[in-house]
Amino acid sequence: MRVTIIETGLVSPKNRELHGSYPQMFERMIGAADATVTFDTVSLPEGEALPDTDRLEAILVTGSAAGVYDDVEWIAPLEQFVRTAHAAGVPMVGVCFGHQLIAQALGGVVRKSEKGWGLGRHVYEVAPGNGVIDGTQIAIACSHQDQVITPPDGAMTILSSDFTPYAGLLYSSGRTLSVQPHPEFSVGFALACCEMARSKGDAPDRVVTSAQASLAEPLESARLGGAITQFLTRSA
């Protein structure tokens, strides 16, 4: 199985040296669950062109500092790419920005949340019998201000919290999945995201301090990463 990673954001040079790029983080996450998976990366911020969906086996759309409503030249083509892949039934997963982009492309509403920054370790309720993720709760790192406010018609909410009601969506085809939190993040990079939010000046110190403290508790990244890997590869 070959997963095509659509890179929508660039990690800073300092953090890339310490933690890797977003595609590298996902390669580690998926590789830990299935060492047979291989990868291609298409970097939209670097000006690379989107591939034809009819030759792809599986797709993963990464996170980004951009907002899905921003005036960025590659966002509209990426939305059309998502709609085409979804209609064709290509297994596809989006994370954070990818979650929001897929939701918006398929008819949902995304905006900056009045709740402010979601940072650190968040605990999400898992919808029973969703067919993707087992258990009743899962703890994953997050880093976002934007949220899906209204899911697309036919999307099932499979992860939720008071802070992020639509944190995980399984779309009507059953072949498209998106999640708001970051199972690909190490604790070290999640801590770095807290500091980046503080340095931007729009995350209050109390939010950052609480988020940093929360990351001392265990994350269940491998559990969600394994579920995503199985979702992408189960038709192989």
Rank of each mutant, 00 (worst) to 15 (best):
T38Y: 14
A49P: 03
L169K: 07
D134V: 01
P51A: 02
D54C: 06
D71H: 13
R121C: 10
S214V: 09
N15F: 00
I59S: 02
A33I: 07
V123W: 04
A76T: 11
N130K: 07
T229W: 11
H144V: 10
V110N: 06
T84R: 04
G31M: 02
G63T: 02
E27R: 03
Q80N: 13
G20W: 05
G63F: 00
G174E: 08
G118K: 03
T4N: 09
V179N: 00
V61K: 06
Q230H: 15
V123T: 15
P128H: 10
L170Q: 01
A203S: 07
E220I: 05
A190W: 00
S186D: 15
M25Q: 12
R16V: 10
S186H: 02
S221M: 02
I75E: 03
P218I: 06
D134G: 05
G9C: 05
T4E: 06
G201Q: 09
I6W: 02
A216W: 04
A58K: 01
P152G: 03
S161T: 11
L191Y: 00
D134A: 07
I228E: 03
G120W: 05
V110W: 12
G116C: 13
F39A: 03
L44A: 01
K115E: 12
G107R: 12
L101Q: 04
Q80T: 10
G89A: 11
G89H: 12
G31F: 00
F26C: 02
T136Y: 10
L159E: 04
L78P: 01
I75K: 00
I228C: 12
D146E: 13
Q212F: 03
Y69A: 02
K112T: 14
T136S: 15
T229F: 09
K200W: 15
A139R: 15
R83M: 11
L170V: 08
H122N: 12
L119D: 09
G116Y: 11
W74L: 04
I6K: 04
V61A: 07
V126G: 00
E125Y: 08
V123S: 08
Y69R: 08
K112C: 09
D40A: 13
E217C: 10
G116E: 09
V148H: 06
E73T: 12
P23F: 04
G188D: 12
K14A: 10
V132D: 00
P91G: 12
M196Y: 00
